[in-house]
Simulated scan of single mutants.
Amino acid sequence: MIHAKIKEAIQKYNEELVELRRKFHREPELSWEEFKTTAFICEYLENLGIPYRKTEPTGVIATIEGGKPGKTVGLRGDMDALTVEELNKELPYASLEDGKMHACGHDAHTAMLLIAAKALNEIKEELPGNVRLIYQPAEEVATGAKAMVKQGAMEGVDNVFGIHIWSQMPTGKVSCNPGPSFASADLFTVTFKGRGGHGAIPQACIDAAVVASSFVMNVQSVVSRTVDPQQPAVLTVGKMVVGTRFNVIAENAYIEGTVRCFDPAVRDHIETQLKQYAKQVAAIYGATAQVDYVHGTQAVNNDEYSAKLVQKTASEAFGEEVVYFEKPTMGGEDFSEYMMEAPGSFALVGCGNPEKDTQWAHHHGKFNIDEDALATGAELYAQYAWAYLNDK
């Protein structure tokens, strides 16, 4: 199932692959601001002779048309950066934009998918089918994939495959297990309204700070006491804004948080319980509560056939020892939007190497990747496409 010319091409273009990744890393662009990256991708594909169209406002959809009839496989790479200050100032390719950084590896994803496209384009006459290339913006705000689907990224696609570089795994390892991979990721806000007043006269007030604090402490029991312990779930309050002055009892309190799980029924249960807790806690103190619950990304659940094909492809391309089991993460990924249109899988490619100081967590200011992982990711993209199109 492995195409020798793909492997040769990836090796031949490895230096270019590294340079592409470093270019994107030096020039990070935030979600929905990836104009320069989009323009570069378009020019790169045009030079390869691969038909493409720019999506709005950013992003690119392209198709490599095979020389033989067959299915269509989609390959996705995201390209947005984060509002994180680069702490790796000593790197020759450190971010040139203050307060912006590729702290999650999307620079690597874009570079890998460009070189994969280059390799696949060289054997396009042999392809029994087509390869859809999806260069996606705005993954970090969980709206990019939905916009790309709406603009036709998945039209005619039979199977879809994505990769995330992963610093928590050793360099070169590949993990793609059937079933849950990334959790659903929702946002909730709670606004408590009490009655403000002088800090010296609490009996005349309803202290929103006390109400909000009580909610934060008690709402954790939604997971610990109402969800099956064998069903992973996380409820996190990440922001609380309350009060205006040291001697004024707060009238209002505002809370933001997130809910992560894998099971849709658990998701609905937590939403119901969270709303009930907020209103009941407020009622105890004589306050009121307004809860807004926003469904973000769906859970990423790898299709069994597709995940096993990834494992087989990785094993044949790089050796059986690269196949790795990484447990599901409670992180969110909007790749799930593509999998609602067609079956597919989402693989992790390890890039963690303490000797190169690339073991830092994603979204950290010192995040970096072991660039030896780039060739693994680029080849996995291309070899998976070849394997899927040839699998009868």
Rank of each mutant, 00 (worst) to 15 (best):
N14R: 15
E16R: 07
V18W: 12
E19G: 00
E19P: 00
L20H: 11
K23C: 05
K23L: 15
F24A: 02
H25D: 08
H25C: 06
R26P: 08
E27P: 00
E27V: 11
E29R: 11
L30I: 14
W32L: 14
W32I: 08
E34Q: 11
E34M: 09
K36M: 09
K36Q: 13
A39Q: 15
F40Y: 15
F40Q: 04
I41L: 15
C42W: 03
E43M: 04
Y44P: 02
Y44F: 13
L45Y: 06
G49T: 13
P51M: 05
Y52F: 14
R53G: 05
R53E: 15
K54R: 14
T55L: 14
P57L: 04
G59S: 05
V60L: 06
A62P: 08
T63P: 02
I64S: 03
I64Q: 02
I64A: 06
E65V: 12
E65Y: 12
G67E: 12
P69F: 08
P69G: 10
P69C: 11
G70A: 10
G70W: 06
G70R: 08
G70I: 05
K71I: 10
T72S: 02
T72D: 00
T72Y: 02
V73Q: 07
G74H: 00
G74A: 01
G77L: 07
D78Q: 01
M79T: 09
M79Q: 02
M79S: 02
A81C: 10
A81D: 04
A81V: 03
L82V: 01
T83M: 14
T83E: 15
E86H: 00
E86C: 09
L87D: 03
E90Y: 01
E90K: 10
P92N: 15
A94W: 05
A94D: 10
S95R: 07
S95P: 09
E97C: 08
E97G: 00
E97H: 13
E97I: 11
